[in-house]
Design a binder for these strands. Structure first.
Lengths: 346, 346
DNA sequence: CAAGTGATGGCAACCGATTGCCATCCCGCG
DNA sequence: CGCGGGATGGCAATCGGTTGCCATCACTTG
């Protein structure tokens, strides 16, 4: 019998059984035990059954690390989010987690605190461990993302990079719905409270907004950029209050809620004086007062679909779909929008 | 030169360099390369410097899997949460993540969808990969937790198990503050909208509430149990509206918010007719209308401290602190509580 | 009856690092 | 000049699986 190592000289108290232990107990070779589990059919059915039973009795579990070393199969997927405390991600994480678990993968959620360097560091740490990566709203440059993507199958969320599969919300359609809604409420001059410059979605939304406004013959005004947070929204309130717009579409719900609060503090009433539309329909959009009219992003679906895309991409040898997957966004009308009233000067 | 394996017969296109490659490039043995990184001083300073530089040039990164196999050091920690979409966890996750990253660990967040069996499965999958576990609000039985804890260092959050380190919110103190606040507002009969039976925190809060009420000579009434969700709170509204209490402390903020909404729907005004106090101060507590008065749990600190406790426990050989760490909770007074008004029958 | 074929199991070489132990070499000192 | 000891580097055995290849053996088939 082989003498096994300087690491565990004596038979330890309660060490976890390995294929060697199972093999010894069954009187077969370790390779046979391995195959009994991973190569059904490669081993005589009876032998396999016996091995399985003995393994079961001994409480054998394959060591995922040991398995991963030669095969590279860690059964781990990374989801990188720019900020876990952003409610935007809750449902995305949940959706991704479910899809991963369904496929027998474990999801590693990495929070990078809105920092591109933290993002690169987190990836560097996680990359060798995981089989694939979903990049949620990455703050990295396109080229940096491409470098990562060369090392591991990658799917990006809410961003389009040619050659890299992506899953995005249909921003154009959602924005159009919002603008149409405001137009129907007789607003003629509407504002856009912009998010971070680096945000891909921000660019999309702003562009879609100008197009939709033009089609409907509305004037638009851009405010910002603002941080995609409540504080950013509060900051936007000053700019909006001093302007002549009667309705504002915000980069996202956090900005919209912050904006409403700022507006309220400044004595501007929502929706009487100014209507506000958010984006995403995060937890809290329904809770705030007035309840926020918003473009609902299919958050859970986004997470789920991103992981599924990643998995199919990993399975097939050829680079998969090049066209970004567009998931539909719908307008949810609540209380923060209303018919335009002639605006009094503040 | 050794012929390396059936796995990679030819020199692959862009395979990532290993210590063997670096060793060959430097004309030293692989073990020397290994020591140049992990055993400073064990290798001649010049040699080490040369190795480091060559490694740098080649873009060498140690393979964490390969390192982990013999040593068991995966640099991974698990945080198990009962529901990632519950805003209660956002700050906890963030705090835990920061503490983990600071210590050069990566945090694996596992969502178990409020199910004890999913929890056990997730743990089974993650346990061999991680060096330690933080159990956030586990739904598992004490004995099941003890079984897990025998396999890996474990810290539990918001729950006390003798012999297992835990980090908890000072529920008693927080509850007392809430009750004192209500008493000061002249409420004489207060309700408690209970959370899940299985929740350890629920038991603590209810008990603390009775004690505090007794000390202040108030009457208390228990409603529930309810699911710890908005829906659960809405359900509680019916019970509360039909009772004679003039103030309610809810199991947590989600229940409190759901309760307020249910109350509003039933025509009961908050805080005029009924005052409501929540627990945790999650994202959204400040947003809802009226803004929720609540006992603020030190969420980020909870996550951070749990991970730190875990890490120190892992470092020292002896089982660490047995007394649970109590983190202070403070009452945040907002708009959902007010002076008692003689209650009209509904 | 010999050669061919498929089923089954074992051997041993990996994956890429870590580490106990040994071999050298150099230096100082008695 | 010889010996003890510290510094340095290499060898080789692991960690626990996976898998290419070969040996056997039982059956077919011609």
């Amino acid at each position: 019998m082989t003498c096994r190592g300087p690491y565990r000289s004596r038979v330890d108290e309660r060490r976890v059984p390995t294929i060697y232990d199972v093999a010894a107990a069954c009187g077969v070779a370790p390779s046979t035990v391995s195959r009994a589990f991973s190569r059904p059919g490669r081993v005589n059915a009876e032998t396999a059954a016996r091995i399985r039973q003995v393994a079961e009795e001994m409480g054998y579990r394959a060591n995922p690390l040991a398995r991963a070393l030669p095969t590279g199969k860690t059964s781990l997927l990374a989801l990188v989010v720019s900020d876990v405390t952003n409610p935007f991600y809750f449902e995305i994480i949940r959706g991704a987690e479910i899809a991963a678990t369904d496929a027998d993968y474990t999801l590693l959620v990495a929070d990078v605190h809105e920092s591109a360097t933290a993002e690169r560091k987190a990836l560097e740490r996680a990359l060798p461990l995981v089989e694939g990566v979903v990049l949620g709203t990455s703050r990295m440059s396109d080229s940096a993302i491409r470098v990562m993507a060369k090392q591991r199958p990658t799917v990006v969320l809410n961003r389009v990079l040619t050659g890299i599969p992506s899953v995005i919300t249909d921003n154009a359609r959602g924005t159009r719905r919002a603008v149409e809604h405001l137009a129907a409420l007789e607003h003629r001059t509407i504002g856009y409270a912009a998010g971070p410059e680096a945000s891909w979605a921000d660019g999309m939304r702003w562009r879609a907004m100008r197009e939709a406004a033009e089609a409907l013959d509305l004037r638009v005004q851009r405010f910002g950029p603002f941080a995609p947070t409540l504080a950013g929204g509060a900051e936007a309130a000053a700019a909006v209050a001093g302007s002549s717009v009667t309705a504002v579409v915000a980069y996202n719900d956090l900005v919209a809620i912050g904006l409403m609060r700022g507006l309220a503090a400044a004595g501007v009433r929502v929706p009487r004086d100014v209507s506000v539309v958010g984006f995403d329909d995060i937890f809290g959009a329904e809770l705030c007062s007035p309840a926020l009219t918003t473009v609902a992003a299919p958050l859970a679906a986004l997470g789920r679909y991103a992981v599924q895309t990643l998995l199919t991409g990993m399975a097939s040898r050829t680079p998969p779909q090049v066209r970004p997957a567009l998931l539909p966004a719908e307008l949810v009308v609540r209380e923060s929008t209303g018919r335009r009233v002639r605006r009094r000067r503040a």
